[in-house]
Design a protein around this nucleic acid. Structure first.
Ligand SMILES: [Mn+2]
Ligand SMILES: [Mn+2]
Ligand SMILES: [Mn+2]
Ligand SMILES: [Mn+2]
Lengths: 233, 233
DNA sequence: ATAAATATTTAAGCTCACCTAAACAACTGC
DNA sequence: GCAGTTGTTTAGGTGAGCTTAAATATTTAT
């Protein structure tokens, strides 16, 4: 089996997929920004993707994926995230170094290839940044209990579940703070002056976290034993 | 670190590298055949590679790699063969299915990436087809004791070491004959009529091997205990 | 409602890597 | 040595995916 679309086409579909989730529709400008291209280039490609029936596109309105377009987009995202797991788990890359390579690897391999990679990696459900990995049908279960760390409240215990920004400098900053996915913390204090926090980790070691960091960190609250609000059976 | 050359350029360097080994120089026509392109396309690319100082090229004469060109070529071959090992050993692909994917994967990753992949695979010295894997300096030790199976002699015991043709249909034919790399055989008979052979494997099971198969199979003789000709200390 | 600002499309042109067809150079046979 | 064959290069052109600049559509502000 060959690649569904060209590398460029797959990148467009991926961008449209993500923008559609955020804004309901992908505007020309937003696509252009995400792909570091000019709006003129985007218009041209949107025409081509419309021809291929991978998007529905109305001039001046924006683009939405068709079923086939969505399938290609999610399969590309699946490959991207599986390769990132491979690079971290098997090749020992740091989590801030894998995106650039995954951006190339995601365009290689068919469904059979991807399923073998998936099996080899033990069918992981999230990538090294906490993002969910779609299954071969393009479906995945998001964790609804995850929310941005800037919405935490005092005394709350929580687990770090992901990042909403995968930029290298942010990830390296988290390394410096010894903040890793899966690690447990408790909110000690919040400082309205600058929006910063004091948390303490499972060893009782305190850290200071800026508003910028908390705003891009995804966490899941740990229900307290006595507190029983919003508990799922 | 980014890719040394474009994908197309790397494919040209790889082709020139192999042709140079076979014929001392890479002719326009031979390159064109290997890359399934027209001679006119090759001339154009040879000009570009000359500009980049990756080849020495004299019009109407042919191309030879410079030191830098050789470095890029061997590093691409290294990546190709390491990925083939990965696909067979880790993703359980059959040896006739890996070349197509390696042809794409070989263009991804820098030296650090490749060295990590190499380490993860346990620094293999040959790929699934018995071809040697260059080290990070582009050097490798060929096995001089390897020769084509059609030069075997009666009663000779030998080990299958590689194939000089990696085409899928040939590899699948070897699978059907249960001929695998590393397997031991003994020559039972040779039939000059059609150039075919009878061999028997380490279980004593006899197989018939055609001239076409023997001519593309690489083997290494197993020295007999009493015979001591050409023995290295 | 209209003017200004913003977003999008069209127009023209670029680079890369390829193609075909024609011109040209280099070998080959005698 | 010259004709014919083979191999190579040049000339002209294509398509994908870009660019900038100009034209046009849409949205926002007054
Ligand atoms: Mn990524
Ligand atoms: Mn990509
Ligand atoms: Mn191969
Ligand atoms: Mn290749």
């Amino acid at each position: 089996m060959k690649r569904s679309g060209s590398i460029s086409q797959e990148n467009y579909l991926k961008a449209i997929f993500k923008l559609q989730h955020e804004h309901g529709i992908a505007s020309n400008q937003a696509i252009a920004e995400k792909l570091a291209a000019t709006p003129a280039a985007v218009t041209g490609m949107l025409h081509k993707l419309t021809e291929l029936d991978w998007i529905d596109y109305t001039a001046y309105q924006g683009a939405k994926l068709t079923a086939k377009g969505r399938q290609i987009a999610t399969s590309t995202i699946r490959k991207h995230r599986l390769w990132e797991v491979f690079l971290v788990e098997k090749l020992q890359f740091k989590w801030d170094a894998v995106h650039q390579w995954a951006e190339e690897l995601e365009h290689i391999g068919d469904a059979n290839f991807t399923n073998r990679l998936d099996a080899f990696l033990g069918c992981p459900s999230t990538d090294p940044h906490g993002d969910p990995i779609p299954d071969s049908n393009g479906d995945w279960k998001g964790n609804e209990r995850v929310f941005s760390a800037d919405a935490l409240t005092r005394k709350q215990k929580f687990t770090v579940r992901g990042v909403s920004n995968s930029a290298s400098d942010f990830l390296r900053h988290l390394d410096a703070l010894k903040i890793q996915l899966g690690k447990h913390f408790e909110v000690m204090d919040f400082f309205p002056f600058d929006g910063s926090w004091e948390w303490k980790d499972d060893q009782g070691i305190p850290i200071r976290v800026s508003r910028e960091v908390a705003g891009q960190l995804l966490v899941e609250a740990i229900p307290t034993n006595r507190g029983n609000e919003n508990q799922e059976s």
